[in-house]
Design a protein around this nucleic acid. Structure first.
Lengths: 202, 202
DNA sequence: CGAGTCGTTGAACGGAATCAATCGTCGTGG
DNA sequence: CCACGACGATTGATTCCGTTCAACGACTCG
């Protein structure tokens, strides 16, 4: 679910505020009253739960174009800390108008359900991808899933490094495997684009 | 989201039918009219997309106590095949009454949103877990997240083999690491139970 | 112009997968 | 009732491949 999609549910955008956070700054703390859910414009935020022994446990790392703390919509308090791990720009979505909207507009509720259902599906496919051990197969699987079915082309909006993170690979491994795949004529690379050529080779 | 949670949204449970499927039997096919979403009582189902070249691509593997095809709630057709990969018992949740209910009852909509939001959160933490490379750390992280905060105990409902799959580890690796952790006095094991003893060793 | 980041390649290591074998248990059917 | 098969749990040995550390060029941006 992107911040834009969530914004679109708000008729009155004046209610949405934006703020910048420095690295290591807290957006909220465990136990704080949960009045907002959040979207990241740029930067990175980690949701960290402090265990009973005081050890930090990262529950989730959110990056640009993602929302977080949606579950707080139905909780009076936050159950973890949200720490900016970068210079981060964040939109605040106030809970109350959103809940009111969902109460009064079945259509808005339906839209939110659709957004969440899609996100569930996306997360599941990402998880499934991680069950593939071989770097080569994981990359290919990802390409097959995300490239245009017609042209086999995938336009990269993010640097390869980020793609590596999404795939759960060291970026060096990704570079190497892409180079191999190109040598084997399975893909072709251009600036910001990867094209599947020989698609019979999984 | 469990089938029980979804069932609880239906006032008229007579609308819910159950069916058994043999291994390799299809629950639905890509392009079929999407009239149901599904819950698994027992067994396993794979959601498979057939690529343009005819190659099958596993999008998601659903197991007991999970629901699948929720995104079909807002799509007229299914976009992948659902294949039983085991003897599987499945509940059918008809879309129409569910959509009607969401339209007429803001409360039901709120509940479904809450279910989905929680599921999103769970999936994200599972995904985060997979970013941990070392088997030992991954297991410990999982235990810290799932064990009772008070007693440090975790009751296993599923065989260790399934836990290994959830962790993304070969089952042999899980056995070995658990044995090591017990030898190091970090955990203690009893029938169906794992207890965190020394919690200062992440 | 220098700092920072991305992209790239090389070398070495370590650790998890894999193959394999064994044991115990449970359920089933002859 | 017992034999058999299926499956979970466990341990050993080996292999392999992805991470890690390291170094370098290209490029951008202040």
């Amino acid at each position: 679910m992107t911040p834009e999609e969530l914004s679109s549910l708000f008729s009155n955008r004046a209610e949405l505020l934006e703020r910048n956070f420095a690295p290591d700054e807290a957006i909220f703390r465990q136990g704080d009253e949960a009045n907002y859910i959040y979207g990241i414009i740029s930067g990175r935020v980690q949701l960290v739960r402090i265990t009973s022994e005081g050890r930090p446990l990262v529950m989730f790392t959110a990056t640009a174009n993602e929302t977080f703390a949606e579950a707080a919509l139905f909780s009076p308090i936050y159950h973890c800390d949200a720490i900016s791990s970068d210079n981060t720009k964040i939109i605040f979505f106030p809970k109350k108008p959103l809940l009111d909207l969902l109460q009064s507009s079945p259509d808005a509720a339906r839209q939110l359900i659709a957004l969440l259902a899609r996100q569930v599906r996306d997360l599941r496919t990402r998880l499934e991808l991680r069950n593939i051990l071989s770097a080569k197969d994981r990359i290919l699987h990802f390409l097959y899933m995300n490239a245009s079915p017609l042209t086999g082309s995938l336009i990269l909006q993010a640097p390869l490094k980020e793609l590596a993170a999404e795939l759960g690979l060291a970026h060096e491994t990704l570079y190497r495997e892409l180079a191999k795949l190109e040598k084997e004529n399975i893909i072709q690379r251009r600036e910001n684009e990867i094209i599947l050529i020989n698609r019979d080779t999984i």
